Amino acid sequence: MDEDIRSDRPTCRIDAESFSHYREKLPGVVESILESCDDVECHTHTHIDYEPIPSRESVINIINKLREILFPGYFNNEKLDPVNLRYSMGQSVSVLFDMLSEQVCHSIRHDCFRYNQSCTHCVEKGNEIALSLLESVPAIRKILATDINAAYDGDPAAKSHDEIVFSYPGVFAIMVYRIAHKLFEAEVPLLPRIMTEYAHSITGIDIHPGAEIGESFVIDHGTGVVIGETAEIGNNVRIYQGVTLGALSIPKDAGEQLRGKKRHPTIEDEVIIYAGATILGGDTIIGRRSVIGGNVWITESVPPDTRVLMEPPRLIYK
């Protein structure tokens, strides 16, 4: 045994020397990375400053805390009962206010510094926007209730409202959207998109916070759904997986040319859009009570009470 250990020692020394040789190159790697940070092309995606930027981790914590408040008792770590509800809610709202105001402040301040804007009193604005969002929680709860009821009424696979709240990805994505939309309306930079892209990353449902969506909205199954920034969706609309409400083909300089203009379709009340349908264009309107079949491609408006279907494909059996 001792001879085996001694025979390994020269190899260990060689490995240690080889390891040191590689580590000695690290300072050069560091200098190369730092030089790239000063590169003109890379400077716009580098943040090296004394002022902090929004924290994605904090934003995720805010979403989870808001979910506890929007659905009391479902996602809390502690048990909620009529005795401790007021205390628990008070704690959650207080913590959320501090988290929200800080992240809103960081977002606004970051824009001020990066784009040399005039002072917007970001701390005070952060407090105002955080309070406004918390004050809107009852209204958000009411509209989410219509979304959940619509999901239950239209899905025979749903056994209870509890099942929908706990497990339906569409409900989670819509909840995050409705929160982010409030911040978007308040012109908070960064945070709304961080929120909806987080929901996108875990549900596969991509809803831009700028979209306008009415009540009793259902995304069934959900994976692959895309809803663009200027899309408008009425009440009692149901869409299925793989639906795209997008923009038409755009030029290379579209960022400057089309920013802020209507690029995505309008979906009126009581429309159903089945899986894989693609509807494009800011002038495209799907009239109320229409049904859009699966896998269709639409770039022109559809009158109310219309069914749009593809011809049955020719199937080949071998």
Score class of each variant (00 low, 15 high):
residue 131 L to Y: 13
residue 180 A to N: 05
residue 25 K to E: 15
residue 109 R to H: 11
residue 284 T to K: 02
residue 86 R to S: 15
residue 21 H to Q: 15
residue 182 K to A: 07
residue 260 G to F: 10
residue 125 K to I: 13
residue 67 R to E: 13
residue 5 I to H: 08
residue 114 R to W: 09
residue 169 P to M: 03
residue 9 R to K: 13
residue 301 S to Q: 01
residue 1 M to C: 03
residue 51 E to T: 03
residue 188 V to G: 04
residue 308 V to Q: 04
residue 315 L to W: 12
residue 245 L to I: 01
residue 43 H to G: 06
residue 161 H to P: 01
residue 48 I to S: 09
residue 195 M to D: 04
residue 275 A to H: 02
residue 255 G to W: 14
residue 101 S to E: 11
residue 308 V to P: 03
residue 177 Y to N: 04
residue 86 R to F: 11
residue 88 S to I: 15
residue 94 S to I: 06
residue 127 N to W: 05
residue 19 F to W: 11
residue 96 L to T: 01
residue 144 L to D: 06
residue 225 V to R: 00
residue 253 D to G: 03
residue 9 R to G: 01
residue 74 Y to M: 05
residue 261 K to Q: 08
residue 45 H to S: 15
residue 50 Y to P: 00
residue 1 M to H: 08
residue 102 E to V: 06
residue 207 I to N: 04
residue 177 Y to V: 14
residue 218 V to L: 14
residue 131 L to Q: 14
residue 187 E to I: 07
residue 17 E to R: 05
residue 95 V to L: 10
residue 85 L to G: 01
residue 199 A to R: 04
residue 314 R to W: 02
residue 40 V to F: 09
residue 48 I to E: 04
residue 217 F to M: 10
residue 179 I to C: 02
residue 301 S to V: 02
residue 149 N to C: 11
residue 213 I to W: 02
residue 258 L to E: 01
residue 134 L to F: 13
residue 265 P to D: 10
residue 81 D to S: 11
residue 17 E to T: 02
residue 101 S to G: 06
residue 275 A to Q: 06
residue 252 K to S: 14
residue 30 V to M: 14
residue 61 N to S: 12
residue 210 G to L: 05
residue 82 P to N: 07
residue 262 K to H: 06
residue 306 T to Q: 00
residue 248 L to E: 12
residue 14 I to S: 12
residue 314 R to E: 14
residue 215 E to P: 00
residue 157 A to D: 02
residue 200 H to L: 05
residue 62 I to T: 02
residue 118 S to W: 05
residue 75 F to Q: 01
residue 249 S to I: 03
residue 119 C to E: 14
residue 15 D to E: 15
residue 7 S to F: 12
residue 46 T to Y: 03
residue 283 D to P: 08
residue 311 E to C: 04
residue 237 V to P: 02
residue 13 R to E: 15
residue 268 E to C: 09
residue 119 C to K: 08
residue 11 T to N: 07
